[in-house]
């Protein structure tokens, strides 16, 4: 049973609003160790130096999108096993399937509640403490 406070999380979204919302929800769950990145490249830059346990990433972003980020994370040995949860819109089933093929660990449909976010994280790591 992992302690929520120990999970290092990277939030990746090009929208400040979304990053803030995710961070607020994570904090409410006790996940306080968070970093943010504005796009896939930014995220990789951040990850390569300082790995995290969990990446929550939007799909549609400039420069490097969520799928590209996922693939890069999986292809890069030091980060290959980082848990990744992808944020998607409502109408993106096909996208989720592609993300699954590239090894995404779960996905979260926008808009989401703190409760859903919790369920998804627990689906990845098991019940949070």
């Amino acid at each position: 049973m992992p302690a929520a406070s120990a999970i290092k999380t990277l939030i990746v979204d090009d929208q400040q609003t979304m990053r803030s919302l995710i961070r607020t929800s994570l904090n409410a769950l006790g996940i306080v160790n968070t970093r943010e990145a504005a796009d896939g490249e930014d995220a990789l830059r951040s990850l390569v130096g300082l790995p995290v346990n969990l990446v929550i990433t939007d799909f549609n972003m400039p420069k490097l999108d969520g799928l590209g980020l996922l693939r890069a994370i999986r292809a890069h040995p030091p980060t290959a096993k980082t848990a990744v949860i992808m944020l998607t819109g409502r109408a993106d089933r096909e996208l989720v399937q592609r993300a699954v093929q590239f090894g995404v660990n779960n996905y979260l449909v926008k808009p989401f509640t703190t409760q859903t976010l919790k369920e998804k994280i627990e689906a990845v790591f098991g019940p949070l403490q």
Binding site: I7, N53, P78, T79, T82, A83, G126
Partner: peptide, 11 residues
């Protein structure tokens, strides 16, 4: 599910 090892994030 992923078994989280908090000592070595990502590793």
């Amino acid at each position: 599910p992923v078994v989280l090892d908090l000592d070595e994030p990502g590793g």
